[in-house]
């Protein structure tokens, strides 16, 4: 089933996909990893939902890779009944000097919480998000510090190591 999904992507959006691979390191667990460009990200997601209406959005994760930030959106495509789930993961890179990405809540409303989390944890700006408030960090957490980053915006300076004893 993953092979069909990959073929349908290649047919419709051939040149927009930078890299695609199907991995199966453990028997029975197949995963499809796609790398797409920032500008064609929304088109790719729209095609996925149009071609396979039973797609479910799971979560969006991301990490800091020096000059850019990589975001990964995890989807699961299912067919009704016992045919199983297929795991489709879409990776997109945004540069650090302009970290903007369009929202996908008009296609799948359940992605709201993940997008709010990406905004506060990595400093990514999601365009046209319906609700830009913080979700997992409290309001008195300092602005400008992004916990998942590893550069000068990271949380290193507000960390307190409790296991070194309470000598405060």
């Amino acid at each position: 089933m993953l092979k069909d999904i990959l073929d349908s992507f290649k047919r419709e959006l051939g040149e927009k996909i930078i890299e695609a691979r199907i991995e199966e390191k453990v028997k029975g667990e197949k995963r499809l990893w796609l790398v797409v460009r920032k500008d064609s990200f929304k088109r790719v997601v729209k095609h996925l939902f149009l071609a396979y209406p039973n797609t479910r959005f799971a979560v969006a994760s991301g990490y800091d890779a020096d000059t850019h930030i990589t975001l990964i959106y995890h989807f699961f495509v299912s067919l009704e009944g016992k045919a199983g789930d297929a795991s489709v993961n879409i990776k997109v890179d945004v540069p650090k000097n302009n970290p903007v990405l369009p929202t996908i809540t008009d296609i799948v409303p359940g992605a709201l919480i993940s997008e709010r989390e990406l905004q506060e944890m990595l400093g990514v700006k999601i365009k046209d998000i319906p609700d830009p408030r913080r979700i997992f960090l409290s309001n008195d957490f300092p602005k400008g510090i992004y916990p998942w980053r590893r550069d000068e915006y990271g949380p290193e300076r507000i960390v307190r190591d409790l296991h070194r004893g309470d000598k405060e």
Partner: peptide, 12 residues
Amino acid sequence: FMLSHVHRGIEW
């Protein structure tokens, strides 16, 4: 609703 009262930084 508002969450954020028990963020423990586990992923970090």
